[in-house]
Design a protein around this nucleic acid. Structure first.
Lengths: 340, 340
DNA sequence: CTGAAAGCGCTTACAG
DNA sequence: CTGAAAGCGCTTACAG
């Protein structure tokens, strides 16, 4: 593989001149530049990123801290991983996968090994222990999540409070008086995942403002458990409308629609667009484009890497409405007894 | 951040001695070694991976070529990404995400930038164009997939032929005579994804051997389209048993069971265990642990990196049976008319 | 406008 | 058993 030295020799210039034409910066006489470019093409030269990183102390690599929480829902995570990798490449960065089973240890190590320029944290919790590790190591980072108090780090997320408010208002507008929140398993709220906590708080507040009676049910993400829990909840149905915030649960609902008095129109949900794409979920729902959020997270982080003293930013993205697809909604009516 | 020079100075030894205690190799007098370790701890020193990579020309990084094929099913991919990252870390390697929209260009570049030691290819096709690029760049690689002719690269995959055979034999043992293959969209077979092609071939062969009549249906992975296609196929039901090889389609089936004469026991499937985990799919099915395959892929690749002259290996993993969960299967009977 | 030199933080022969 | 030196492939002041 050709090095910058080979190129310099072939072009009859110094290495620093080759470097100048590659990286811009200094002016190089067009004539010289052409010779250099010639040589680069001829030798099929590409910069060795590792060597450059050593010289500049910039790796152009972003670490993605992925947690393997059984309570999370895999399809949604995958969308983010892919979207983040894409966004990084668009900006000439790469994504390194960093499993952090032991939270803070992984962060310290990655910093010490100088293997990434910054870190992306998914599924941020209120009082996330990883944030302390981040502070200790002084590594640039962006949070996918929105802790309530200012953590000293840039944060990007869907506006979960706004989404919840919109959903409650929607069911209220349909004239119901008792609404159910079908939430994630309790331990998700106990861990204080910001998306869960913010959504629930906003549901509660909005329900109170609109004088709606609110009941809360927390459902497993294990499909079998979710199914029997939902069967129980929806056959009793001590409510007129339901707001889902649990991908596994909402994905199960089409199968149960026929055995509940709650009409499909009174069921709304906040779920990932990946889920919507994979399973025709026939309910009114809100979600935002993971691509948009991933893009914002990456550019925010890069900006931070390039300028550590900028003021901290917190970006909230507005949710979008998804309407259950035609095919899906027509099926919803049919589910049940075609062959009695 | 401390460097090896700082450690050397503090311990009163040369850098090469510090290097020796870190990397093993030469014998260092215990007394000296202790002083060095002292210093390392005191300064909280960690090797700069980039610098080491430059000196050794080993990056300890594996590139994962992830394609964003809409026809693929995201949850399954996510499982592999996570499992591969885990396996890599266990072996002191890291995973770099490499989106390859333009196949071969990405491979050339990554090689030229010397940013990874080897490559993992997911979703390998028969006559995969990326394999030529791999040959051209002479970069170590492992294929997740099993092309029929010897490609010159190590390959690892689930035994799709064996799985298909087992499934056909199972339905045959239930005394049926006409079986349907519910496959992926046609373009998956046209692209010659090895998992699809091998499975279908083996279904055809085994059916012929067992003198079963075989019909084939190809179903979209778009949920709405899949649903209406399946409704049509299963209400007509010109077969007694069905073999699914399409995650999106099989995930939809529980909703349609009540409207088909085909009994649940006569439906079998090959689907990802991630899907099984997320959605209680009440059918007999085969699949293997992605962890096992990911582990094998990673260790195979590392072995190849360390010794390029070893003979090529092709490893096939036996499928495992998954039985629809209790809750799921009991529900399968109930789906339908609880509230007539 | 271009080149020679030093340096980024390691490892690896090679002396001693 | 340990140290001094060269080198991995770049970039970046600094001369000229």
């Amino acid at each position: 593989m050709a090095t910058i030295g080979d190129v310099a020799k072939l072009a009859g210039v110094a290495k620093s001149t080759v470097s100048a034409v590659i990286n811009g910066g200094k002016y190089v006489r067009p004539e010289t530049r052409d010779r250099v470019i010639q040589a680069i093409v001829e030798l099929d030269f590409t910069v060795n990123r590792g060597a450059r990183a050593l010289a500049t102390s910039k790796t152009l690599t972003l670490g993605l801290l992925v947690q393997f929480n059984e309570a999370e829902f895999a399809p949604a995570m995958n969308t983010y991983v892919v979207a983040l990798s894409d966004a990084a490449h668009k900006n000439n960065y790469r994504i390194l996968l960093l499993p952090d089973r032991d939270d803070t240890a992984a962060i310290r190590q990655v910093k010490a090994e100088r293997v990434v320029d910054g870190l992306i944290l998914m599924n941020v919790l209120e009082d996330d222990p990883r944030i302390d590790a981040l502070h200790a190591t002084k590594i640039p980072a962006v949070l996918l999540g929105m802790p309530s108090e200012d953590t000293g780090f840039d944060a990007v997320d869907l506006n979960f409070s706004g989404a919840a408010k919109a959903l409650v208002e929607r069911v209220e507008s349909m004239g119901v008086s008792r609404v159910a929140l079908i939430g994630w398993p309790e331990n998700v709220y106990e861990s204080k995942a910001t998306y869960a906590v913010l959504f629930r708080e906003s549901v509660r507040e909005t329900a109170q403002q609109l004088q709606l009676e609110l009941v809360e049910h927390y459902v497993s993400v294990n499909p079998a458990e979710a199914r029997s829990a939902l069967q129980e909840i929806f056959s009793r149905a001590d409510f007129d409308a339901a707001i889902f915030h649990n991908d596994a649960a909402v994905a199960m609902m089409p199968q149960l629609l026929s055995s509940t008095p709650i009409p499909r129109e009174n069921i709304v949900s906040l779920h990932s667009s990946e889920l919507a794409r994979m399973f025709a979920i026939p309910f009114f729902a809100v979600e935002s484009e993971p691509d948009v959020i991933a893009d914002s997270a990456v550019t925010t982080l890069i900006t931070r890497i390039e300028n550590r003293d900028k003021p901290i930013t917190r970006k909230l993205f507005a949710p979008e409405w998804i309407v259950g697809t035609e095919a899906a909604s027509s099926t919803a009516h049919r589910t049940g007894c075609a062959h009695p």
